[in-house]
Nucleic acid binder design. Structure first.
Lengths: 245, 245
DNA sequence: GCAAAAGTGTTGGAAATACACCCATGT
DNA sequence: ACATGGGTGTATTTCCAACACTTTTGC
């Protein structure tokens, strides 16, 4: 479906093009992916060590310039695939950042994407370069304006996850309700009542029973569920009017 | 605050640059403004007749290429000011559109902005070229992918207006509750209960009494209110948890 | 006096919250 | 046996939705 440009390492290329942009006074376009994962009951983000001189050693989002022949979404998918080996992941455009001096080498406008992946299932394939999962809280200094981009995407996610069933992308195919609740608690940074949480999700009718249970847990094992998007119909669509500032 | 580039008519310039882009295989960047207004109890959008050969006579959003030395928001403000003479308006980035062939002349990625203005108060100053207000419903054919952009911004507005107090930008400084309700009904395309609507807004504590009333209406005149952003504090911020798919 | 919209309260139902006890497993 | 989290139901409160009559103005 997506064009694979087969650039195994496009970094030198990027620098060449940036030089060129600098000369021409033309604006470059890139995509940056904020890749979230959920591990050990914490929200993580996948970052790479910047090799850019001004930001030596700082952490940076995964991004790249947009090729002339590819759509923005495709470019984001490409970055994701190049860096993680994953396709078939949740990916959505969040916001575009275009301050004049956000990139020290040239004028580059970047389109930020948010991606949600299941850390356990996929085992990032390319840990060759300095690619690491970081706790989302506990990050201060980053390269470029990437902290700002990350913050924007995090807030976006907090809101989004309450309105759409996309949290499941962060979990294994089969998960316990506890894991689901941990996910929401971690992302929203709140404590939730276990019984009300269950009621809520069961009433939404999008969890499918597996007949399996957790194993190797030092307590009564929880039932495992599977997310079933088909079961989830928007019933009588939410009411017309939900004004609430 | 904003750089005024004093390009009175930047259109020839645009074409020149597009030509250039086409040759270089470089991607151009533009902003497009979806400017909403509210008039005669209907939501309107400000459009211009395209002078682009492929789209002769079709309606188009107000947009322009982004200058090298200006931020994206500044570029959007500039377009707005050039075309309408307005500054100090509500303006917010919505989404970026970058399909490869969305522009027939060259690869151009555009950042869509949504703007809300008060039609009565401002009286668009530059009606020189083919600038007109159109009903938002009742628009099919537009230039480029502008219909898609408009639709996206309209849906965005419908959602946004329910969560943030930005509808007021579309109304005169002083307005009746009826006007406010008409606004919501028009944008959301629903009928609302008048009493519940009042209750809602009064309880939100962001309307300020003027001591004025409507005049020249063929019925009992309604009281006029003013929007007071200061009064609106997020009280005890909405509850932690609003899961609702 | 008639038409047209302003203004105003109450009630029933649904959804959100708070809360406590027994159950199954590993050690 | 005990520690740990799984699983369940109910009472209270809060928010939403439906609904009808009187008032003020222009004509």
């Amino acid at each position: 479906m997506l064009a694979d440009t087969s650039e195994t390492s496009s970094r030198p290329n990027v620098k060449t093009i940036l030089k060129q942009l600098e000369g021409d006074g033309v604006i470059g376009i890139s995509v940056d992916c904020v890749i979230f994962g959920f591990d050990e009951s914490e929200l993580k983000v996948l970052l790479i060590k910047s090799d850019f001189k001004n930001y030596e050693g700082k952490w940076s989002l995964l991004g790249n310039l947009v090729n002339n022949h590819e759509d923005l979404d495709q470019a984001a998918y490409r970055v994701l695939k190049e860096r993680t080996g994953l396709d078939d992941v949740y990916l959505e455009q969040v916001k575009t950042f275009g301050e004049v001096f956000r990139h020290p080498a040239a004028r580059v406008v970047t389109i930020a994407y948010c991606s949600l992946i299941n850390v356990q299932h996929h085992e990032i394939k390319k840990l060759d370069n300095e690619l690491h999962w970081h706790r989302v809280t506990a990050l201060s200094d980053m390269a470029f304006d990437h902290k700002k981009i990350l913050d924007t995407c995090y807030v976006w996610l907090q809101k989004r996850i309450q309105e759409h069933p996309l949290g499941f992308s962060l979990l294994p195919k089969k998960f316990s309700l506890r894991e689901l609740q941990n996910l929401y608690e971690a992302i929203l940074n709140v404590k939730l009542d276990r019984r009300n949480f269950r009621k809520k999700f069961f009433s939404m009718n999008l969890l499918e029973d597996t007949d399996e249970y957790e194993s190797d847990v030092p307590h009564r094992p929880g039932k495992l569920y599977r997310f079933n998007y088909e079961k989830y119909q928007k019933k009588e669509r939410k009411k017309w009017f939900g004004i609430d500032f």
